[in-house]
Design a protein around this nucleic acid. Sequence first.
DNA 1: CTAAGTGCAAAATGTTTGCATACTT
DNA 2: AAGTATGCAAACATTTTGCACTTAG
Lengths: 138, 138
Amino acid sequence: MPRVYQTRQQKAVQKLFSARPEDCLTAEEAYDQLTIAGMEVGKTTVYRAITRLLEQGLLRRYAAQDSSEAASYQYNPCVDSHLHIRCMDCGVLEHLHCDEVEHFSAHLAHHHGFTLDEGQTMLYGLCKACQGKQQEKK
Amino acid sequence: MPRVYQTRQQKAVQKLFSARPEDCLTAEEAYDQLTIAGMEVGKTTVYRAITRLLEQGLLRRYAAQDSSEAASYQYNPCVDSHLHIRCMDCGVLEHLHCDEVEHFSAHLAHHHGFTLDEGQTMLYGLCKACQGKQQEKK
DNA sequence: CTAAGTGCAAAATGTTTGCATACTT
DNA sequence: AAGTATGCAAACATTTTGCACTTAG
């Protein structure tokens, strides 16, 4: 792994993500944010910076649910790895800090020989609010 | 929802997926399979047939892990919905038929107000074989 | 000074759309 | 006959790459 130079642009991208560990941003959104902030970072550079951060394990990547939508990225403080759940209707992202997850993960390891990567996994379903909405429709 | 005509092509695509409910195929792969089988179905038509099957709930869609990789689709016999786990190293797909999943899902519903959609969710991690490989590398 | 990063334009990829034609019902 | 599907080519959106130039270490 080649060394990572601390350029103005690289620092700007990392800072953007690390400043909001709760948020998921697409490359485009990150680019826009930087532009608004007057940071002058090329879009290509944003992509390359993100790639570098992924390699360093500082970002996690979430594939889009629908096709032809962009992937999003989130700051990944290694210490606090946890599952995320995404509502398929409203798109809200929730962070699952919960012992039950550890229990389930342990079960997978023991009974299925599978080591769950919480950082890479996104659970999909419906949040409380959207379950209500779905029922109204019926 | 408009009615779905049973064309030669539509039937061919559905048959392809339903014949192998264990397999995940990308649109491209489906197209290739059909072409090899001499079915003469256009790629556009494959995409449109897949879209229709998704709308009907007969197919589930899995977003690609790495960027610039294609999404894959799998036949979805509604009755037997279950979680899937994918090895990030070798790519193997395992089907999780397990009471623990129901237990975890129930927990999510009760304590987090979140209804898990097992069909849409893919767990990522490392399978037994690849955990061994990872350790050797160190 | 050298390895690494930048930014533009162009390519690549997966997917969707416009449209004239053909098929189902 | 009306509604839907097909297939081609072209459009699209996201992401990557080639290349000449700049910057960090």
